[in-house]
Design a protein around this nucleic acid. Sequence first.
DNA 1: TACGTAACGGTTGAG
DNA 2: TCCTCAACCGTTACG
Length: 357
Amino acid sequence: MEQTYGEVNQLGGVFVNGRPLPNAIRLRIVELAQLGIRPCDISRQLRVSHGCVSKILARYNETGSILPGAIGGSKPRVTTPNVVKHIREYKQSDPGIFAWEIRDRLLADNVCDKYNVPSVSSISRILRNKIGNLSQPSQYDSPKQPASQPTYNHLYQYPYPNPISPGSTKVGSHHPGVHMPTGHVSIARQWPSAHSVNNILGIRTFMEQSPIAGTEGSVYSPKMEDWASVNRSGFPGSQNMNGLEKSVVEPDMKYPQSASGLSTVGSFVPGCVYPTTNQYGVYGGPGAGYVTPGHHWQTQGNPLGPSVTVHGGDIAAPVTFKHPVREVVNRKPNSPIIKIPETLSNIHGLPIPASSS
DNA sequence: TACGTAACGGTTGAG
DNA sequence: TCCTCAACCGTTACG
């Protein structure tokens, strides 16, 4: 994979189409917002489109997490062995049963809930492929398949209350659909704490104290999604710094950011996401490539390995902010937007090194 | 000017 | 192994 990854947006920032911003940047956005910096200023400071800033802040306010959602993958399977078993039972007890009737029974018997009950078509397929030939002649199925029962389809929407949480295999959540109110500080969704800004802050703190913190590593780690997935599944360590695992340390490491690291609010003003060394710093320099070559951020063996470039440092290198557009700094210091003043600082009792004031 | 959001082109990963 | 598809992404443009 070539290093030619990355594009430059209108603000001069570098991004990779289709890929999420590094967590460090995301965190930075939230931190700045909580410091009262207006979204438009954050956008300019970090050179991230305002739409993105808006989206990230909105998501954070809604979920408490700064992390991107899980990308790719499929819906969690609903036709689990248990479901199939029940369908088989229904079919055996009543060979003439309709798929939609089976569906209703699955719900009635609490085998499934409305979020994971198989669609009529799925049940039909199961009957045809897995059960039809086991219990009853397939001829039973076809004719009876109310092939389309649109009426029921709406029930089969996947949209779990919480899109990211659907106790999907991927997510591994224990509480699908759990939605945490914004105010609740950290973790929302299912990704337990690991994904919360607070946790990340904690991470940062950890990193700052870590021997390897500041190490110039730059290899990036595994995919963010992987990280997320791991964490979403429980993430025991998320709550305590000792639990710091790769997951914690490698938040956005999908991007080889040389100067990334979780930000330190203090550097906000002069902050520029991009390291001095190169304009594309956010994602690693030209040489670094936005994404680690070789496809896929293969996991690094050691979570805390050298790959992590999270140093107490800031996303922004102490570089003057080169604004293609203009320099706009905090004209209106306190944006009313921010309404969760302490969320970032209260978790883990880890104060934000807000030196920016 | 600031901001929310739809559209767009892109990536990802389970099936 | 390759393809499909639906999830997500960030940028852009519009109102």
